[in-house]
Amino acid sequence: MFTAAIITGLGLGSMYALLALGFHLTYVVSRTVNFAQGSAMMVGAVLGYTLCINWGWSLWLALPLTLILCGLYGLVIERWLVRPFHSRGSQAWLMATVAGGILVDNLALFTFGKEPRQFESSLVNLNIELFGSNVGALQLLIPLAGAAIALALYLVRRYTRLGKVLEACVQNPRAAMLMGINVNRVVAIAFAVSTLFAGVAGLLIAPLFSVNAEMGMLFGLKAFAVAILGGITSAGGVFTAGLLFGLTEALITLYFGSAFTQIFTFALVIVALAIRPNGLFGSQALVKV
């Protein structure tokens, strides 16, 4: 039973980690975050459901299109809800992205419908015996997919030209601009990738959960807590914090009961941040004087 709780925790944690990596990515590039991350996750699940179940498209056609549309959603957010405010030094992007997320949630409520729906997948009913516990195959796939995406992000940043461009923007956007790098485009790509990650999380979670217009709200909030806990400037830190958060939730529920899950988990977050104000793996930003 301990194994089942660990798998549950790792699955949940990977979801938080994928959303939180989105927060990390936009923050390091532009010092802004997209508070519509939760809604992007919902968009992934709802679009996947609509294309696969309602329209009967093949999974191999529906999934890439869903992810492309999720990426476009990120571009729209950056272009219309972040750039106009951020370029003038205003912090209004914060409220604009919150509002954008609520708007899209309500649009989904209006178009997709008010009832939760089930994204059926043959993987859901496939159980594997692992250390004496029955574990769903999809539950195992989620942390693996999460880890693979985090690894891909690391490799892209470390070894590709795009990664070097991104790194230049992270280290000194002004110098990068003077070197001929189109910083606005890099920021837009960061937003597109962040909502794409959220879309992947939505698609992975949909068969285990139910698809509904309000599914992303709480996940988005918890993922932001994870991003802060991990130290938003550290990709590895954010991913590890996501897994820790999910595992903590599952183990507290197993050993202390579900009445204490949220109380203990968030109390631990507060204690961790009191001890390490920049997050578990973050470092204090250098201020040049």
């Binding site: 089942a4 709780a5 699955g11 949940l12 979801m15 529920t253 197993l254 009961g257 579900s258």
Partner: peptide, 17 residues
């Protein structure tokens, strides 16, 4: 007594208890 909520992805830990 165990608690569940709308956002619960998996209630295996509660049921295990």
């Amino acid at each position: 007594v165990e608690r569940i909520q709308d956002s619960d992805l998996d209630v295996v830990p509660q049921l295990t208890r």
